[in-house]
């Protein structure tokens, strides 16, 4: 489903991704962990081209892109790739001028050109799925953080993406609201959705991930099944990082 080869990205003189190779099969959940500044969010944002890699290649579903310095990318390919991914943001980024229902309907109408009734029906289903029936007409500011993030998940699912990308989806939430968002994510994983999740939630990683990637300094330090990476890492740097995280919990 996802195939990344030798991906490089720098911001000015700062090398953020330094040769990433990664693959993920359909229906699997990949969790990316690592200290801040390790490049994990940049890697995730490269997957739907919110950041354009400098070099390397990316294959996602049927779309393949080669990156080569400043060369402009094919706009149609970019749009196609973005339509086959759904993204959930740390700060939700819901459209504040639209209700929960309208947030979920928006891309179906504008991007997919579904008719309004079909979009509405699908949106109501998705809001029910994330446990927000009855909140259709609420504006984002009338919802709690956890509810907003669940609308964010429904919105990202609305275009029927092949892959869901989560960028620290629970980091901005009050601790008591984290659970409701993780629950929705686990349900998605159980349904066979292909997911890439950047998070600090080690419990989620241990329980839901098929594969864990530990990044540091723009490279992949460890990758493998969660039991191996989280409990028995092979490098000193990895066990240091994991110790810091577990001592915090």
């Amino acid at each position: 489903m996802i195939e990344i080869r030798n991906l490089h990205k720098s911001f000015g003189s700062l090398q953020v991704l330094n040769g990433i190779d990664l693959s993920l099969e359909k229906g699997k959940v990949l969790v990316i962990i690592g200290p801040s500044g390790s490049g994990k969010t940049t890697l995730l944002r490269c997957l739907n081209l919110l950041e354009t890699p400098d070099a390397g290649s990316l294959q996602l579903g049927e779309t393949t892109l080669e990156f080569n310095g400043r060369r402009k990318m094919d706009k149609q390919k970019v749009l196609k790739l973005r339509q086959s991914t759904g993204m959930v943001f740390q700060s939700y980024n819901l459209f504040p001028h639209k209700t929960a229902l309208e947030n979920v309907m928006e891309a179906q109408i504008v991007v997919q050109k579904r008719d309004k009734e079909a979009a509405r029906k699908r949106s109501l289903e998705l809001l029910a799925k994330v446990g927000l029936s009855g909140k259709e007409d609420a504006y984002p500011h009338q919802l709690s953080g956890g509810q907003q993030q669940r609308v964010g998940i429904a919105r990202a699912l609305a275009t029927d993406p092949e892959v869901m990308l989560f960028d620290e989806p629970t980091s901005a939430l009050d601790p008591e609201l984290v659970g409701e968002v993780l629950k929705v994510m686990k349900e998605l994983a159980a349904e066979g959705m292909t997911m890439v999740v950047v998070t600090h939630e080690m419990k989620f990683a241990a329980e839901a991930a098929d594969k864990v990637v530990l990044m540091d300094g723009g490279v992949i330090l460890e990758q493998g099944p969660p039991q191996k990476v989280l409990q028995n890492p092979s490098s000193e740097r990895a066990s240091q990082f994991l110790n810091v995280l577990t001592s915090k919990e």
């Binding site: 739907n48 973005r82 980024n93 819901l94 990202a156």
Partner: peptide, 12 residues
């Protein structure tokens, strides 16, 4: 973030 949310949904 508003631009990014729109782009991530496939909008031009």
């Amino acid at each position: 973030g508003q631009w990014e949310a729109a782009y991530s949904l496939g909008m031009t």
